[in-house]
């Protein structure tokens, strides 16, 4: 096999030479991207999961909306927030000591009789959620925009390589040169670029923390049919945070239905599952179509 450039070579580089150099460059970029990405997404070596409050857990598990439901579950558990016959929220007492900024925001929104579904658009609530997210980013559990962009950097390099390859294919085809191997090489590269572009919004340290918290609190999973009257408001909040609004439905089906809170069960695996929500809630689970809807669980929500 000759590698000497001939007058007919595309861009003056022979096909085999280009292929080898291209392959080497692709390998370097892919390996480099993966290493870089792993480092960015790692988070701190060991997070103390005991330090996380239910709303922080909820934000890591399901983003803004789950944090809101968790706050609402805790406030409902202490009887501070209720719902009126017209489905608007209402308040039934003063906030307790130890209320989080999100609790204050949700309580304030309830005092203005918002619908539960409007909480995520309320300015005060959104500011509280930003505060929650900032704290988690400082702890290395949630990723900042800069970190997510950085983790994605490799995919831009790979995309450049793919574009270069496409240009070479077009030029090669125009010169009637064979391009089959290059096309074969481009396919896995494009796939790798797409995979590396998918960046979660929490670190692996947060994944580990959530797994540990779910393991420790299996008794709050809907399948255990937890006695929230015994576990109290804190248990209810953590139940919602770890296992979704199915916990809120189990705790107070009347409130959940009246406030039109979408039923959602996050299985211990971290994905949404209708089965879990329908097995745990007993009589409250007759809702049929409302079972199992909602957010995609683990990585998909909020962001």
């Amino acid at each position: 096999m000759t590698v000497i450039a001939a007058p007919g070579d595309t861009w003056g580089i022979s096909g085999p030479t280009f292929l080898w150099v291209y392959l080497l460059a692709a390998l370097v970029v892919v390996v480099g991207s993966i290493v870089h990405r792993r480092r960015v997404l790692a988070g701190p070596p060991a997070a103390d999961v005991g330090q996380l409050g239910p709303q922080q857990v909820a934000f890591l598990n399901g983003g803004n909306q789950l944090a809101i439901w968790t706050s609402l579950g805790g406030l409902r558990g202490t009887g501070i927030v209720g719902v009126r016959p017209d489905r608007r929220l209402t308040v039934g007492g003063q906030l307790r000591v130890g209320a989080t900024p999100l609790d204050r925001a949700v309580h304030h929104a309830a005092s203005r009789n918002l619908y539960a579904s409007e909480l995520g658009r309320d300015g005060w609530v959104l500011r509280a959620l930003e505060q929650l997210r900032d704290g988690l980013q400082r702890q290395g559990l949630a990723l900042t925009q800069a970190q997510r962009l950085s983790a994605r950097r490799g995919s831009f390099l790979l995309l450049s390589l793919v574009l270069l390859g496409v240009a070479r294919i077009v030029a090669g085809l125009a010169n009637d040169h064979p391009v089959g191997f290059l096309i074969l090489l481009l396919i896995p590269l494009a796939v790798a670029a797409a995979l590396i572009a998918r960046v979660p919004w929490r670190t692996r340290a947060a994944d580990v923390a959530l797994r540990e918290l779910r393991r420790r609190n299996l008794h709050l999973a809907p399948a255990s049919d937890p006695a929230f009257s015994t576990y109290g408001a804190a248990g209810a909040a953590l139940g919602v945070a770890l296992f979704g609004t199915a916990s809120l439905w189990a705790m107070d089906p009347g409130f959940a239905e009246q406030a039109e809170i979408q039923r959602q069960a996050l299985s211990p695996g971290g994905t949404s599952s209708g089965g879990t929500s329908c097995s745990g809630g007993g009589s409250s689970c007759s809702g049929g179509s409302s079972c199992g809807g909602g957010c995609g669980g683990g990585g998909g929500c909020g962001g």
């Binding site: 709050l220 255990s224 015994t230 576990y231 248990g235």
Partner: peptide, 9 residues
């Protein structure tokens, strides 16, 4: 009972 497993623990 599973319902109060967290309390018992």
């Amino acid at each position: 009972r599973p319902e109060i497993a967290g309390f018992v623990a």
